[in-house]
């Protein structure tokens, strides 16, 4: 086959790592290339010893393996920054705290290939693990707010998306199937339609479309007792967004 089966469901973790390797990172080279680097993806200024250069991560790792450079740990990956982020992540149970889109992959690659450039690598590793777990459980909470037309998840990393992708896309697709069944109800008249509608879709819309779209407070349920409340919520908060 043109594309093996395991590649058909989105990107694989290795491919995501590949994408992350295009991100730029600062290095201190130990070589002098004398000429600028004429890459297909653009020109990089010549590498000089004792000067910091911004290069793609794949290049930094390739040079590192030959002991030709030291990699500067990105600001967000220091112990202080991670401690702060973790705290924020734990206190705010509504949204993800800001992390670079490829943070997991970059951190993983650096810990693997440039251990000696990371001060207190063990602490960093532990913090990253805690952070990841906090975010993971938040992402899972998101499934409560998964509705029929959209769900917003700002600041989530690509690798994190990939973890929840199979379940979320399937669930999202199944929820949609419920809609025509309601719209096609033969007893439709306006008032009835609205109620019914509220029951099946607005009760979910209310939560993610209204109050705050990254709001994973999730008390989603199909239970009919939520109809009046959530329909109202939808009406009163539609279009007003907090972020």
């Amino acid at each position: 086959m043109a594309l093996p089966r395991h590649l058909k469901n989105g990107l694989t973790p290795l491919e995501i790592e590949f994408l992350a390797e295009n991100e730029l990172i600062e290095i201190e080279a130990a070589i002098d290339t004398r000429t600028d680097l004429e890459l297909l993806s653009g020109t990089l200024p010549a590498l000089k010893p004792l000067r910091t250069n911004k290069v793609p991560l794949w290049m930094a790792i390739s040079l590192k393996k030959k002991h030709k450079c030291n990699i500067r740990v990105p600001a967000w990956m220091t112990v202080e920054a991670l401690t702060r982020t973790l705290k924020e992540e734990e206190t705010n149970d509504v949204r993800f705290s800001y992390m670079p889109y490829h943070y997991m992959e970059i951190a993983q690659l650096l810990l693997e290939n440039a251990m000696d450039d990371i001060p207190s690598a063990d602490a960093t590793r532990t913090l990253l693990k805690d952070l990841r777990e906090a975010r993971q459980s938040k992402a899972r909470q998101g499934v409560h707010s998964l509705g029929e037309s959209y769900l917003q998840m700002d600041n989530i990393g690509l690798m994190e998306i990939n973890e929840i992708r199979p379940f979320f896309t399937k669930a999202f697709f199944e929820i949609q199937k419920l809609r025509p069944a309601v719209a096609g109800n033969p007893n439709n008249n306006n008032a009835y339609d609205y109620d019914h509608y509220g029951n099946s879709s607005l009760s979910m819309d209310g939560r993610y479309g209204g109050a705050n779209t990254t709001d994973f407070d999730g008390k989603a349920s199909y239970s009919s007792s939520t109809i009046p409340e959530s329909s109202r919520r939808f009406q009163s908060t539609q279009g007003s967004r907090m972020n």
Partner: peptide, 29 residues
């Protein structure tokens, strides 16, 4: 220095070719 440059250039070439191949294969599938 040239050897290092050559390695870097070739790595990038392979990366671009990989994307191109995977792109075309996805379309064919």
């Amino acid at each position: 220095t040239s050897v290092i440059l050559s390695i870097l250039y070739q790595t990038e070439l392979e990366r671009v070719k990989f994307v191109l191949r995977s792109y075309l294969r996805t379309r064919i599938s």
